[in-house]
Every structure is written in C-alpha cells, then in structure tokens.
Design a binder for these strands. Structure first.
Lengths: 234, 234
DNA sequence: ACATTGCTGTCAACAGTGTTGACTTCGCCG
DNA sequence: CGGCGAAGTCAACACTGTTGACAGCAATGT
C-alpha cells in the first residue's frame, strides 16, 4: 500500500462540509426525524462519534445545516411590482420554514442571528425604506412580518408534516365540524363546508392585509379600497 | 386492616385524572421537557409503567393534558366593545400557545380536533357572524386568525423558552445588528435601535391589521382611518 | 360464600437516543 | 527519522419510551 489504499476513494477524509452534505441528504430523503448521529455515521461510512471531532454537538451541526438551507435566495422575475415582489419573497421565506420546521425552530432558539437571517432582515428593511417608511415604522412592521412568515410557516409545517394522513384530509375535517351538535355549535356547523381553506391562499390573504397596512402607513392613501388582486394566484 | 390500609391515603388508586394532575404539576413546575414517564411515576409514587394501564402511550397522555390546559376560558369584563373583546380573546389564545408550545404542537398534529379547539372555533365564528360576515368570509378569516394566533404563539414560545438567556437580551441583539458592516447592511444598521420591539405590542399591532381588514370586509367603511387605539399599552 | 376472571401495579428488559473517555492510527512538520 | 497532534474507532454511560411476563387486588357470576 504505497500511497492511498485506493480501495475506495469515496472516503478521503471527514470534513465539516462533507458531514453537512451527508446530513442534508438524509434530511432531504428521510426527514429531520431520521437525522441521528449514528445515521450520519452510516451515511459517511464512518464511526458515528467521528462527527464529534468536527462539531461540538448535534445542535451545532443542525444550526450550521439550517443556515445553509436558509441561505438560498429565490430568483424572481425582475418586472414585478413592489407589492408582487414583496409578496413573492414572503411566500418563499414562509415555505422555507414550512419545509424545514425542526431546523427553523433551532434557528429561532439560536441567540446569534445567522448570516442568512441577517440578510433576510436587510432585504425586508430595504424594501420598506424604499416606499418611504421611517426606520421606526420599518422595524415595527418587520417584526409583524417575521411573526407572520415564521409563525405561519411553523404552523403549516406542523399541519402537513404530521404522521397521521387524516391531517391532510380536509374533507374529513369539514365533515367533523358539520356533524357537531347544532345546538352547541351553530356557527361552526353552518360554516363547516367553508372551513379549512387552501393554506397558500390563506397566507396570501393575510399578507395582503399586512401590505395594505404598510401602504397606508407609507401615506399612499389609495390603498383604502382594498387589495387589488384579491383571490388571484395559484 | 379492616377497610383500607390507611397507612397512606395519598395513594388510593391510579386514575386518568390523577395522572393528568401529576403531569400538569410537573409541566407547571419544571416544564414539558422534564415530563418523562419515569418522572410521572415518581410524582405519583408508583411504577412508571403503571401509566400505560391508563394511556396507550405518551402522546395520548400529552394530548389529553393539552386539551385540559387549552379548555380554560378567560373571563373578560362584559362592557368591552366588539373589537376590544375580540382582541383580548385572541391575545389570550395566543398566550396559551405561547406558554405551552410543546403541547400546542401536539394539538396541531392531532387530526381529530379536541373539544377545546372546537369551542374556540365556534366562539370566533360567532363573533364574525355577529358583525355581518358571511359564512364563507368568516371561514376564510378564521384561518387567517388561526395562523396569526397559533403561529405567533409558537414563534414567541420558541424565542422565550430557549435555553440561552441571551435570547431575551434584546439590547444585545440590537447591538449585533448595529455593528454589522454598514456597506453590506445599510438599512439594518440604521434600523438597529428600533429592532426587536416588544412582542406583545407587535402581536396587537398585527391583530389590528386583521381587525381593520375584517371591518372593511363587513362593509363598515369607517375603519379606513386606521385603528383607533394604536399603541395602547398592556 | 367461593371461585374465577379481568384489571392494576411491579419488575426486568429492549431498542433507541446523544455523548464521553480511552485507545489506535494516520499525517504532517521539524 | 522522530514525534506530536489531529482524526477515527470502540466500548460504555445515562437517558428516553415501550413491552412482556408475573403478582395481587377487586369485583363479578353462580
């Protein structure tokens, strides 16, 4: 054996990046619930505890992984209006939290904001300043937007990533409410057929409310008639 | 020993209710993270596995516990305006999710809505019908409200229940943003002193946006001037 | 009144998890 | 070539939820 064993070049050395690659692959294929240290070791063909030479503990690894997944920016068509651009960006952000709720929770708990989160804040603040909001108002609105995006994303993730398939059967859910005792739940029974609307539309609906308020804050009074594209979209 | 052993009356028998009492006590005093089957057993002075005679598994126990904690209704002063009442109710609901995030997540994942959740939906739908919203609109708005309340509650819980105390040091967080490279993060640096506003105010701010939109939907055009009690305190 | 039957509690154990310490091996640098 | 530190391996610990076999109590049927 002169140089390298050459039996398998796929195992050159362990590395933060290689470990994160493996972890990302596992998350993508099997979900965060399956991401254990032993599983990472198996994916790398190495001993599970070898990972501890590169990451202090699992949390540190997960935070790095989250920052990597949250750092990807969407490329939007350039000819969008201010409102459409903002809306698309918020929806994209929400979907990031939606598809990786466990990682999102870790990012939320982490005190030092990671670079990807700081970049998102800067982008949003720039858009808000663009239409004339003061730094004070922009900061207030930013927190509302963050609540909206992160909160809704987490909530949707819980609904959709639950083990029980009945969670996604909205017809069955509506039926449950339709069959409630009409004496005790009169309004729920009547509204039953319209409950559990499409989640994407619901998110956009709420986003429009926020954008309306922002435009009113910015002094553009012509938004008082309501959102312009109500009910459009996928 | 004629009747009962009388050596210790504190251990009459195990019971779903007694177990839930113990679990609730543990959650209140030590948090959900400390709620293990063995800990419950110790609290009851019984073998941990005895719990499995009354609950199929830990999830079932937690869901029952969640429904109990979420079933408590707030008693509000009766002389509140429609808007104030709704606002107070939403804030109370949000704080429930905020103080018991782990239980809230379990409720969200559970397909069959529990009685407490159904009661909340009925209450909200009644308030929306009260001001003239159609069942369709009420159902749409209800989903938005649910996103707002549950999402924000979960998000706030993550921020506040994190282990690291720096999470609650908003001054430090602001300082981090103030010290970012001004070339790359111009707006973030300028807005830094105003970032991370009070979370309760932020929630109310967003609630006002939604209530404005609701009143506009209900045809009461006089809400176009904005919310009436903006910035009112705790 | 007795016997049976089923529910309740106990014990030991299993399959997982993250993590640590000791040991070995590799690679680089003097 | 020697040595020294980083990297990988192995066994083990503490902890989790959960299960199956056993023992005792209570109520029930005859």
């Amino acid at each position: 054996m002169p140089d390298t064993p050459a039996e398998d070049v796929s195992r050159p050395r362990l590395d933060r990046e290689r470990i994160l690659d493996a972890a990302e692959a596992i998350v993508r294929e099997e979900g965060v619930g399956r991401l254990t240290m032993r599983r990472i070791g198996a994916e790398l063909g190495a001993d599970p505890t070898a990972v501890y030479r590169h990451f202090r503990n699992k949390d540190e690894l997960l935070i790095q992984l989250a920052d990597r997944l949250f750092g990807i920016a969407p490329d939007l068509p350039p000819d969008l209006s201010w409102r459409e651009r903002f809306k698309a960006e918020l929806r994209y952000s929400m979907n990031r939290y939606r598809s990786h709720p466990d990682l999102a929770m870790l990012l939320a708990v982490q005190p030092d904001d990671t670079p990807s989160l700081q970049a998102i804040a800067e982008w949003d603040l720039a858009r808000l300043a663009e239409i004339g909001l003061s730094p004070e108002d922009a900061a207030r609105v930013l927190q509302v937007i963050e609540n909206h995006v992160v909160g809704t994303g987490l909530y949707y993730a819980l609904i959709e990533h639950g083990d029980d398939p009945r969670l996604r059967d909205t017809d069955a859910m509506r039926r449950v409410y339709a069959l409630l005792p009409a004496g005790e739940f009169p309004h729920a029974v009547v509204a039953a057929p319209h409950l559990f609307p499409d989640l994407d539309e619901s998110f956009d609906f709420a986003t429009d409310m926020i954008l309306d308020a922002i435009e009113r804050l910015a002094g553009k009074g012509d938004a008082a008639t309501g959102s312009t594209d109500e009910g459009a979209g996928t």
